[in-house]
Amino acid sequence: MPELIFQNFSAGYSADTTAVSGVSMKIAGGSVTAVIGPNGSGKSTLLKGIMSFPGVYSSGSVTLDSLDIHSMNRNERAVRIAYLPQSPPVPAGLTAIETVLLGRFPHRSAWSGDSSGDVKIALDALEMVGATHLADKFTDEISGGENRLVNLAAVLSQRTEVILLDEPGSSLDYGHAAQLWELLSKLAEQGIIILATTHRIEMSGNAFDKVLLLSEGRSLAFGEPENVFLSGDLLSSVYKTPMKVRRSSPEGSWIVFPGGAE
């Protein structure tokens, strides 16, 4: 099982300021971790910092199986860690299956064609997200939510041990959002590490095993959902509104009542 360890990790958009700091946590393969927190709390920056994108500065360390991921070269990282941003551009003139096949890029040379193995992996990925019917449709002719599924399939076709997702459920309807979190749970069962930011705890059912709570660029809490959600009035103080969180049943979905009304 892979293991992702953060030690006092910070990230930001200039060398001397941080948008998120002090993240220390250990995530084991086989788990889904939700990163939650108000707008501007540093959720997306955390993921960008892990990926060390151009223009993003970071300090501290993130190791995958004891290997510092910032010392890996881009391709080594790309075959182990996949990333899906919040709203990636829709590529012009590509069909869904072609878009999914782009996820195979780290596994082959820059100009080679798609092998039958690549095509099979891409079709499997589309099937996993329930979007096989979109395969031959052009991505600029399908809906935003459908493009979300196609992008997710592209991430899956990259076949990595770690998947970082920025608001994967945004723009998905209830049905697809439920499917998405179910799928993430299933992927985690295969030993993959899933780290996903989300604004909608209730949309993710009971899919996540761990929660990282960020507020104003600081890591406030990390642990089992029960410990984070039910520890005093932590969420109310972070979101600056009375919050009630409970489970539908002992193992059931999380239900959130913002504003305090139940």
Binding site: M51, F53, R74, N75, A78, L84, G103, F105, A154
Partner: peptide, 8 residues
Amino acid sequence: TEIAESRG
């Protein structure tokens, strides 16, 4: 840019 970077 971000997805391209993430793919190496």
